[in-house]
Simulated scan of single mutants.
Amino acid sequence: MTRDSRPTILITGAGSGIGRALAQEAADDGWHVILVGRTRATLDDTAALIGPDAATVLPADITRAEDRARIAAAIGPRLDVLVNNAGALRAGRLTDLPDEAAAAMISTNLLAPILLTRDLIPALRATRGRVVNIGSVFGDIAFPYFTVYSASKFALRGLSDALRRELAGDGISVSYIAPRATRTAAEVEFAALVEPFSMVLDPAEKVAARAWRGIRAGRRTVYPGLAERLFVLVQALSPRLIDRALIKQAHAPAAKAALSTLPEDAKS
């Protein structure tokens, strides 16, 4: 991979949503962006959007060991920022969740970031770089019908804290970004639950702009707004209040009805 004087950021899941918007933020700020994702066509679309000179397209499935090795080889000895953004989401009752859907969420949201980060630590150490994990407010407040997704994001938040403490001696920093529900392609998986849970969905561009400001400022964590920070504080200090609110919403007729309208593959 040809290098120039620009700092380099690698973003997984860069073909759409938050990953694409974050690539735009980085490119606008003068960074060279390495776009990683499973689908070449969507990565090419992102590259066209941010400008071919700002991007390197690297199709890869981060859940595959051979693809992670190929990423590490392509990166070479130096990387300034790694953004673990790629994710998988499936909503619905746990009793309706197929094995493969649960495995995909754990593999994509947690195991792949662990292993990709491990493989890229030498390149990050060379620049005293930063690992950025894109989590979710669902990683602080566990939502019913998002059971495995919430569990994977709770674990990613724990990974971020542990890595921050472990890698400090190498000069590598860690940021955890926790957006609330976001308008991305994954929205189709839970759209029916938005109204019953009174969710507010942010545009991916808004999430990315806030995330990029936090990354550039070297922030430890980035949450979307005052309301979410308040809810996280209440969850920590008085979880029974959150229990009561979410149990009431989860078992209301509107939520029960919404479950039956989730995509068929979410109920298989």
Rank of each mutant, 00 (worst) to 15 (best):
R38K: 09
G171W: 02
T108F: 12
E100H: 14
L111Y: 12
T184G: 07
E195D: 14
D202H: 15
T2R: 12
P7L: 01
L262R: 02
D53Q: 13
G17H: 09
P239T: 05
A266H: 12
S160G: 12
L116G: 07
S198V: 10
G17S: 05
V132I: 06
N133P: 11
I114F: 10
P59Q: 01
L43F: 11
S152W: 00
A91K: 04
R20E: 14
P253Q: 05
T8C: 04
L230C: 13
V174I: 03
D161H: 14
L10G: 01
K206V: 15
L226N: 02
A245Y: 05
K248S: 12
L163P: 00
D99N: 06
D67R: 00
V57C: 10
G37R: 04
P239I: 06
S160V: 07
F154L: 03
I215Q: 00
I9P: 00
A168W: 08
D170M: 05
G13P: 09
T127Q: 04
L259M: 05
D161K: 10
A211Q: 02
T63S: 12
I121P: 00
I247D: 15
S198P: 01
L116H: 07
T147I: 02
T147W: 06
G76Y: 01
F190Q: 06
A60R: 03
G218H: 04
A162V: 06
L35V: 04
D119M: 01
A23M: 12
I172M: 03
D4V: 02
A23Q: 10
D67V: 07
A27D: 00
M105G: 09
A185T: 15
G13C: 05
L163A: 07
R210F: 04
I11T: 03
S150F: 02
E205R: 13
T261C: 01
A103V: 14
P122K: 01
T39N: 13
D29A: 15
L259R: 09
L124R: 02
L193H: 07
R118S: 08
A41P: 10
R68D: 06
P263A: 04
I242M: 13
R93M: 06
L237F: 08
I34Y: 02
D96A: 15
L82N: 10
Q249M: 15
L79G: 04
K248N: 01
V188I: 14
P7E: 03
G139H: 11
P59K: 06
M105I: 11
A86L: 05
D161W: 09
R157C: 08
R70L: 05
R180A: 14
G76E: 08
R229S: 11
G129M: 01
F197C: 13
N109K: 09
I247S: 14
A192C: 08
R210I: 09
T117G: 09
T127H: 00
F138Q: 14
A48F: 08
T2Y: 03
R130L: 01
G13S: 08
G87S: 14
L58Y: 00
I247Q: 13
P239Y: 04
T2H: 11
L262D: 02
I62K: 03
A155Y: 03
A91T: 07
S198G: 13
A204F: 03
A123T: 05
I50S: 00
W212A: 10
A41D: 15
D243M: 12
L124I: 06
